[in-house]
Design a protein around this nucleic acid. Structure first.
Length: 562
RNA sequence: UGGGCCGUCGCCAAGCGGUAAGGCACUGGGUUUUGAUCCCAGCAUUCGCAGGUUCGAAUCCUGCCGGCCCAGCCA
């Protein structure tokens, strides 16, 4: 177990649970739940909650339910319930029970009746605007609704008629009778039920009144025997209400709500509303666009479940509201892929090289290791031929300082192959470099050249065997670290978040079927975008670049130059 | 402004009265047919600030300062 593991498993929440286990608070049992509302796709912030809730169940030998918090029929959809299950399973977690808050609608209704009978809930007939007005403000107390003094009989009658569909949307609302002068606005007679004549994705048209979050969530937890109800800190102010309902109802148990800090992540937005907006406006091509911080987007981008779980472990659980740097996530995926991704060669921006002293009809089969540090991953073969492609960025007519790739008259090694020397730069009429004429040193295959040092090593692909492909390079979706904290986030879309290269040349082994991520040597980690092939051949998505010391050197040089 | 919560290195985060873990990032150096990986070294005399309690405080107390959340019939 690594140190980061122990960190993630030793948060303040874990300490609370350990203590509860010691004192036998819940009969020595631990039960959690992951309760998404099915109104959008899961994102990296949910991953933190998933890892926490399922991780705790795993660690303490408890249970964790997947529960759809589906009390708002107008926003929810079955499409989302399916996508959510796919994502949770993809991360490698198994729920104990698959639940729907809507499965408890009847029980919730009965409990509401109970509260009315106790004189602790009433039907209010004020308009929405009036209710807002009566609620008061942060600094001034609210005032009682004139309907607050309705008799129990009247409330019972009205609530039952609400259920039977007698009233229009918004005509009445069921409220808890608590305290209109509470300094905590949440406690100023919170709404429990609203009338909505709407089709529900799970209960159909069985109901026309729907319970609200505060009333539903605590009871759902209690009904499922949840011991620790973990949520983010914005729900902290609602904890008194969570407890109020459970204290006033004959529920089977009283779970404990504990809040942790929500994840904020640089250069993106983590809000379902904003993500949905990006999809709707067409800034991205769907919830699973590889630039999206959704789990489906990250999956298509090439992130592995292990890397996301490791990320969750590394960021830890606290009540702080911080913003995590992108480099941390990138470090997690690089660690995983460096260890596990087979290496391949791919030329992204091809430049033809003709090795003039290599016989026209000759061809050698080279053996290439699939992984430089893991021989057990085997090897593959690649033909060496007279014409090859190298990357345009690996050649410079006027090289900047410290450039150690190919230059006119200079030498460089073709990775796994020979050392070549650039003899001539051939240009077209417009002055663009068309191809390079080189020679090779036949005595450099698998050995260092005699009497000189060749520092540069570049990747290449044999021209006649190259496989065409389109490669998509992704960058951060936003151009500033905290787009949500600076006015309209849509003003900060990074125009270069996607760069498509459609004339890429891959080594032939990449046309064979494979499922894992691969490293294109000296470029980065990539994955096949299944089901998104184009007329340019296979489509690869760049998951993340390799660390790039050369890029840093260039940036420093550029900074010095200005 | 009323209420609630939070402030430990650029970022995340241990620490829970005995004298500042770790990861990411960054900076040097070594190995290397990926400017990758790997390795080694450096990186908070100080814990938002100011007082107080104590032999001893990031940890306890008081007061300030800064940030976040709450006025949906959303979750």
């Amino acid at each position: 177990m690594s140190s980061t593991d122990s960190q993630a498993k030793g948060s303040f929440i874990h300490r609370i649970i350990e203590k509860d286990l010691e004192t036998n608070k819940y009969g020595g049992h631990v039960a959690t739940r992951f309760p998404p509302e099915p109104n959008g796709y899961l994102h990296i912030g949910h991953a933190k909650s998933i890892c926490l809730n399922f991780g705790i169940a795993r660690q303490f030998n408890g249970h964790c339910n997947l529960r759809f918090d589906d009390t708002n029929p107008e926003k929810e959809d079955i499409e989302y319930t399916q996508a959510i299950q796919t994502d949770v399973e993809w991360l490698g977690f198994e729920w104990d029970k698959l639940c729907h808050a809507s499965d408890y609608f009847e029980q919730l209704y009965q409990y509401a009746l109970e509260l009315i009978q106790q004189g602790k809930a009433y039907v209010d007939s004020l308009s929405a605007a009036e209710i807002t007005e009566y609620r008061g403000t942060l600094t001034s107390p609210g005032k009682d609704s004139p309907y607050r003094r309705r008799t129990i009989e009247e409330n019972l009658d009205l609530f039952q008629r609400m259920r039977s569909g007698e009233f229009e949307d918004g005509a009445h609302i069921l409220r808890a009778k608590i305290d209109m002068a509470s300094p905590n606005l949440v406690m100023r007679d919170p709404p429990m039920y609203r009338i909505r004549h709407a089709q529900h994705h799970h209960t159909g048209d069985a109901w026309c009144i729907y319970p609200l979050y505060d009333y539903t969530h605590c009871i759902s937890d209690a009904l499922e025997g949840i011991t620790h109800s973990l949520c983010t800190t914005e729900f902290e102010v609602r904890r008194p209400l969570y407890n109020w309902f459970l204290d006033n109802l004959p529920v089977p148990c009283h779970p404990q709500q504990i809040e942790f800090g929500r994840l904020n992540f640089e250069y993106t937005v983590v809000s379902k509303r904003k993500l949905a907006q990006l999809v709707d406006i067409g800034i991205v091509d769907g919830w699973d666009d590889p630039r999206m911080p959704t789990l489906s987007g990250m999956r298509r981008r090439g992130y592995t479940p292990a890397s996301i779980i490791e990320f969750s472990n590394r960021i830890g659980i606290t009540k702080n509201d911080g913003t995590v740097e992108m480099s941390l996530l990138e470090s997690c995926i690089r660690d995983d892929l460096n260890q596990n991704a087979p290496r391949r060669m791919a030329v992204l921006r091809p430049l033809k090289v003709i090795i003039e002293n290599y016989p026209d009809d000759a061809e050698e089969s080279l053996t290439l290791a699939n992984h430089p540090n893991r021989p057990e991953l085997g090897d593959r073969t690649l033909p060496f031929t007279r014409e090859v492609y190298i990357d345009q960025t690996d050649f410079a007519e006027n090289p900047p300082p410290k450039f150690k790739r190919l230059v006119p008259g200079g030498e460089v090694r073709l990775r796994y192959g020979y050392v070549i020397k650039c003899k001539e730069v051939v240009k077209n009429e417009t002055g663009e470099i068309e191809k390079l004429i080189c020679t090779y040193d036949s005595d450099t295959l698998g050995k260092k050249p005699e009497g000189r040092k060749v520092k540069g090593v570049i990747h290449w692909v044999p021209a006649q065997y190259a496989v065409n492909a389109e490669v998509r390079l992704y960058d951060r979706l936003f151009s500033i670290p905290e787009p949500s904290a600076s006015g309209d986030f849509l003003d900060y879309i990074n125009p270069r978040s996607l760069v498509t290269l459609n004339n890429c040349k891959l080594e032939p082994s990449l046309s064979e079927p494979f499922t894992s991520g691969v490293q294109f040597e000296r470029e980065g980690y990539f994955c096949l975008d299944k089901g998104h092939s184009s007329e340019n051949g296979l489509v690869f998505n760049r998951t993340v670049q390799l660390r790039d010391e050369w890029e840093k050197i260039q940036q420093k040089q550029a900074a010095r130059g200005t």
